[in-house]
Simulated assay, not measured.
Amino acid sequence: MSLQTAIRDGINRALRPMGVQVVRGYSTDRAIQPFLSAHRTETAARRAGLSIEDYIDRYSAAPGATAETVEVLLRLADLGDHVARVCEIGAGTGRYTARVIGALRPDVYEVYETAQDWLPRLRALPNVIIQPADGHTLRATRTASVDLVHAHKVFVYLPLVVTVGYLEEMVRVVRPGGVVAFDIVTDNCLDEPTTKAWVSSGATLYGMISRSWIVDLLARRNLSLVGGHFVPLSEGRTELLVFRRD
């Protein structure tokens, strides 16, 4: 059994009581293949009498976490109530997508998602364009073309080199004055109870990145930190960071 298979099976054992599982996406990159099954997640949410957003929040974060995250993002981004173009990496269930579309009413909303079974749900949202996703780049998006490029609960699970590659792409596609936003597990997210909980549960799927290192990296690319906000994560938290392109 490969390490990737062992990790995926371990995650599925932990998720089984909740009625969800991870499956392979269509990327060939082993680092970004596991995803929640759309069919099983939607079925479990219906049985629980909950929306997809509320169901995911309940088991992986905290009730209302998605709505709070988007509210903070929009407040810090200060983009008004209409933009031309938004790009989201790893939109998945579309729970952040739908809220951002409702608030910003973009003319075009580009989505990069490697989990094919969620794509029909994403295509049904207003003005969404599904871009070809390779798990590394935003190659179909023009340079300096988007008002907002964001990702949620994505970089938490990716190797550092993949995350940094995506950050470079976010820098490339955002227009001057536009906003880059994402959440990561920073050193500020860690305390002794959290690390003990992750060690005892074998939570090997999370990766930590130095906050100051990320801020300095993006500052050298003319992105200024606007603000941050802690977001609940299973047995811990991530930090949403919002940057504006100078």
Rank of each mutant, 00 (worst) to 15 (best):
G10I: 01
R13G: 06
A14R: 11
R30V: 11
L36Q: 03
A38Q: 12
T41S: 15
T41G: 06
E42M: 14
A44D: 09
R46Y: 05
A48K: 07
A48N: 10
G49Y: 12
L50K: 15
S51C: 11
S51Q: 10
D57G: 10
E71Y: 03
E71R: 15
V72I: 14
R75E: 15
A77S: 13
D78Y: 01
L79K: 03
G80P: 09
G80E: 08
R85Q: 12
C87Y: 01
A91M: 07
R95V: 14
V100W: 05
R105E: 10
E113P: 02
A115D: 04
R121V: 12
L125A: 09
V128H: 02
P132R: 10
V156N: 07
V156G: 00
Y157T: 02
L158M: 14
G165E: 02
V171F: 03
R175W: 04
T186V: 10
D187C: 05
D187G: 03
P193W: 03
A197H: 08
V199I: 10
G202A: 08
Y206W: 13
G207Y: 07
S210P: 00
W213R: 08
V215D: 09
R221M: 12
G227Y: 04
S234G: 01
E239H: 09
L241V: 09
R244K: 10
D246T: 12
D246A: 10
